[in-house]
Design a binder for these strands. Structure first.
Lengths: 127, 127
DNA sequence: ACTAATCGACTACAACTGTAATCATTAAAT
DNA sequence: ATTTAATGATTACAGTTGTAGTCGATTAGT
């Protein structure tokens, strides 16, 4: 029923800091974003408003201010995005995507260990 | 120097069929897209034009028609997109992304075998 | 009590996107 | 030879996005 919300790049950054910690007032969000982005306060407020309109964020009034919080879980969002990304760019096959990534970036030993753990788990569950 | 071209979703579909096989005339592109997308011919032409303007596609004249071909390689594009995707959504860590994917979709045995092959190769090259 | 700072609401505005339609030219069909 | 169809070029137009500015209300400072 509820159509998947399209979250723009800029909006995502705002959502991301709220995932990190919430609820938060708009000025908290602004100041947390100041570390990474060079956005005017008004810009951030606009993005907060748009995310509310898209029902990605909710808020509660606290006197005159709003306390914002995410309405969707980071995991749910990233899973869906990943699925659609892999499906679009790699015909749904995860291995070629990892291969391209590994070839472009350096995999750390930890990355590899984590991947091995995933595989091991998969093998225990599947046959 | 050359700024990375922003390729929109619709534009990507057009580029994708040209990656599959090129060069191709606009009507070939249109007919190949007909299988998956329900786009008007004019729409596809617009997208071809935009991709040319963005220097993502090139073309040669063949009498009155154009023969279009990609100016960027699929691998280069997908690698860059993957890197930025993983960086944005997973702080650059590939394993959590694979974990989320595996958890959302079913990994096939082939996927797992391919991943194992990647890991093996990595281990041979590193340490 | 007044003034200044701050908040959310609303407005702005150009670029990019999705989705074509129109136009001028040329090639194909009759 | 004319009409028709197909091409690329140009134009259209609303919705989204990035990036704020203005406005009216409220709170905080003095």
């Amino acid at each position: 029923m509820s159509d998947k919300p399209e979250i723009s790049n800029a909006e995502f950054e705002v959502l991301d800091v709220l995932w990190d910690d919430h609820p938060a007032t708009s000025s908290e969000v602004v100041s947390r974003l100041n570390d990474k982005k060079d956005w005017h306060e008004k810009t951030v407020k606009t993005l907060l408003g748009r995310l509310v309109k898209k029902e990605v964020l909710g808020f509660e009034k606290q006197q005159r201010q709003y306390l914002y919080y995410p309405l969707i879980a980071r995991e749910d969002y990233t899973k869906k995005e990943t699925t659609s990304f892999v499906s679009r760019l790699f015909k749904g096959k995860i291995a070629p995507m990892v291969a391209g990534f590994a070839n472009q970036n350096s995999l750390t030993k930890q990355d590899v260990n984590e991947l091995k753990a995933l595989i091991k788990e998969w093998e225990e569950n599947n046959d």
